[in-house]
């Protein structure tokens, strides 16, 4: 059985169930790298130019780790466009080449170019090429592709309906994610904060210093872009930015546009990465919209030097600020502070 390695980084959080279903249907064994830890980050940092954004460095570290796990190949897709006319960051466009150049001792790469803009035929051919190493039977490959798509749709529906985060949903469906640290899962009478950003920023608890877990421990109910309806995200983009530009715009601009309008949401936190080109544009758009909306908003910029203390201080200050604003408006009983303290 061929062992296919999938790094638990970057687009893992968005597409893992799809990829897992595809390769398993073709008879391969899927091996996922363990969650990000310090050695992963250090392995990535050592191999890439400093300006490279942190999530890509982390991805490199995961590819290194997969070699140690003894896989036959590593799956590294080049996602160019998921819709015609959209544009993806250069790092995604050339991800396999980047890995080949920087992680020289990695296992052989299994590449695919996904460019919906090139048309259905090209996409189908690309998928068949991906399946060749496993089987020569095109019908078998087609079946695997359909199973993959089903798994993907199911994954998205699960998160939306049950209000789960990707790691939680992956865990539930037999995947290899790890659930967030949450000592207290309040879902009544607490502050509701929407966190928006790319999944590899929101759900990698190492690089974001367990952001979601900390918020939950403060008694906050956290909602995410994956929990919003797809049309809501599209509308959010149109409202804030006129038209969609980036492949991964929905989870930042779209989610921000959607949650900023939601009266049930008390505050929005955008989690972006220093050096992320798309984020530099989206963050500005979101910031301006938040100001117009007058909704409590905070942008958190992560990089490998992000100190935990600074992050914690900002989170505390933000939650405090929303709390005090609400009390100032008289819509919050003093007893709520007691409720939250009990949780901790």
């Amino acid at each position: 059985m061929i062992r296919v390695g999938i790094p638990q980084a970057l687009l893992y959080y968005q597409y893992y169930p799809m990829w897992q279903a595809f390769f398993q249907a073709l008879g391969a064994e899927v091996v996922v790298s363990p969650p990000t830890a310090r050695p992963t980050v250090e392995a990535g940092l050592a191999r890439m130019v400093a300006e490279t954004c942190l999530p890509v460095k982390v991805y490199g570290g995961h590819v290194c780790h997969l070699r140690e796990l003894g896989v036959d190949c590593v799956f590294v897709p080049a996602i160019r466009a998921t819709e015609p006319g959209l544009f993806n960051c250069s790092k995604f466009l050339g991800l396999p080449d980047l890995i080949r150049a920087t992680v020289e001792d990695s296992s052989p790469l299994l590449e695919i170019d996904i460019d919906v803009g090139q048309g259905r035929g090209a996409l189908q051919r690309a998928i068949y090429r991906l399946g060749w190493p496993f089987t020569w039977n095109p019908l078998h490959i087609r079946k695997a592709a359909l199973a993959a798509w089903e798994a993907h749709l199911g994954f998205q529906a699960l998160m939306r309906e049950r209000k789960l985060t990707p790691p939680e949903a992956i865990e539930g469906s037999g995947g290899e994610g790890h659930a967030l640290d949450s000592r207290c899962l309040p879902d009544t009478g607490s502050l509701v904060i929407a966190v928006v950003g790319h999944p590899y920023c929101l759900y990698d608890s190492y690089i974001n210093h367990n952001l979601l877990g900390r918020l939950r421990r403060m008694g906050v109910r956290v909602i995410t872009p994956e929990m919003a309806p797809a049309q809501g995200l599209e509308m959010g983009i149109r409202r804030l930015a006129r038209f969609k530009y980036w492949v991964y715009e929905a989870e930042v601009t779209g989610a921000a546009g959607y949650y900023l309008e939601d009266p049930a949401v008390d505050g929005v936190i955008a989690v972006v990465v220093f050096g992320c080109g798309p984020d530099s544009t989206m963050l500005d758009v979101v910031q301006r919209a938040a100001r117009r909306q007058e909704k409590p908003y905070m942008g958190l910029v992560l990089d490998e030097h992000t100190g935990e203390a600074g992050l914690v201080t900002r989170l505390e200050a933000f939650v405090d600020m929303i709390d005090r604003r609400k009390s100032a408006r008289g819509s919050w009983e003093a007893g709520s502070m007691e409720k939250r303290r009990e949780c901790a």
């Binding site: 890439m48 130019v49 300006e51 490279t52 960051c89 250069s90 790092k91 050339g94 080449d97 980047l98 150049a101 920087t102 050096g275 080109g277 530099s280």
Partner: peptide
């Protein structure tokens, strides 16, 4: 320019 994405790709690939 600082943080230019395509050139960061080039920087990473040039050593090869």
């Amino acid at each position: 320019p600082f943080t230019c994405l395509p050139e960061i790709m080039a920087q990473n690939i040039l050593p090869q």
